[in-house]
């Protein structure tokens, strides 16, 4: 057995420190936002509308708005994303088509979120005339969620064993029947995990809704898909940059941040946990 070199000891310690830094970052953020935010969260905060020019009351309309926007985005992106993944894995198109589509999906995933906002502003708000609305915001967020849903669905579809496709085809089922009745049901848990993952991503996005959906303050709740809407992430931004009562607003922003963080992180943790369970199941 060779004696461990000093370089190795120092090197491994440095790698450990790098990993430790991640835990430290996460801990620090959770600690500061948790400690200051927790004091301001109560039932009234979750269920009431803001009052007294944003210095009192709750954030209920912003919570509802974020739910609408997220739901809308998923409703738009899910069918498109799953269909795209089905095409890529089941209909196995020619090599160059796969390459073109993969490159465009990867690049779409790398587009800065504010650029999605500008696209939504030009196309949905102005050109299609939806105005600053839930609809415009949902469509914009949906395009942003599309790459996440496609890659998760692809992973789920690829994991379905080839043998059960062949079994179905051998029984005389057509390709579409095989996809609809055999492959998709088997891939469903994995696809759902992708949906949950994209919910976490979409719910926390701010830049794409800045010019397409969000309003700082609205009386009451939205009544149609063409209404402007309050949203939790935008609410935090607005509290910190507008208004005239910085101290009160910061307190509410802490609570809103904790709420958003809790929402997004629990959704992501659920997705991570489900995915780990599924990967184990595939390998078993």
């Amino acid at each position: 057995m060779k004696r461990k070199s000093i370089a190795q000891k120092i090197g491994f310690a440095a790698l450990g420190a790098c990993m430790g830094a991640n835990i430290l970052f996460l801990g620090t953020i959770l600690f500061f936002i948790g400690v200051k935010g927790l004091g301001a969260i109560n039932w009234a905060f979750l269920t009431q509308a803001p009052r007294d020019s944003m210095t009192a009351g709750g954030v209920a309309p912003a919570i509802v708005g974020t739910l609408y926007l997220t739901l809308g985005a998923i409703l738009f992106a899910l069918p498109l994303g799953v269909a795209c993944a089905v095409y890529l894995t089941e209909y196995s198109p020619k090599g160059w088509i796969v390459n073109v589509l993969r490159i465009s999906i990867n690049n779409l995933a790398g587009v800065p979120s504010v650029v999605f906002g500008l696209f939504g502003l030009t196309v949905f708000v102005k050109y299609m005339g939806f105005g600053v609305s839930i609809l415009s915001g949902s469509l914009t967020l949906g395009i942003l969620a599309l790459p996440v849903i496609i890659s998760a669905s692809q992973e789920a579809l690829v994991a379905v064993p080839q043998s059960i496709r062949e079994a179905s085809l051998a029984l005389g089922a057509t390709q579409w029947e095989t996809i609809r009745k055999v492959v998709l049901p088997a891939a469903l848990p994995g696809i759902l995990t992708g949906v949950i993952l994209s919910v976490g991503r979409v719910a926390g996005e701010t830049a794409p809704i800045l010019f397409t959906a969000a309003a700082f303050y609205l009386k009451g709740y939205p009544d149609s898909v063409f209404s402007e809407v309050m949203a939790l992430p935008y609410h935090i931004y607005a509290l910190m940059t507008e208004g005239t009562h910085p101290e009160e607003q910061t307190r509410i922003a802490y609570a809103s941040s904790l709420l958003l963080l809790g929402l997004v992180l629990s959704v992501s943790m659920l997705a991570i946990w489900l995915r780990q369970r599924q990967r184990k199941a595939y390998h078993a």
Binding site: N22, F25, L26, I29, I33, S113, G200, R201, A203, G204, E205, T206, A207, P233, Y234, I236, Y237, S257, L260, L261, V264, L265, S268, M269, I272
Partner: peptide, 9 residues
């Protein structure tokens, strides 16, 4: 999880 913390936060 660190990657999924929203940028606004």
């Amino acid at each position: 999880i660190l990657a999924s913390v929203p940028s606004i936060v």
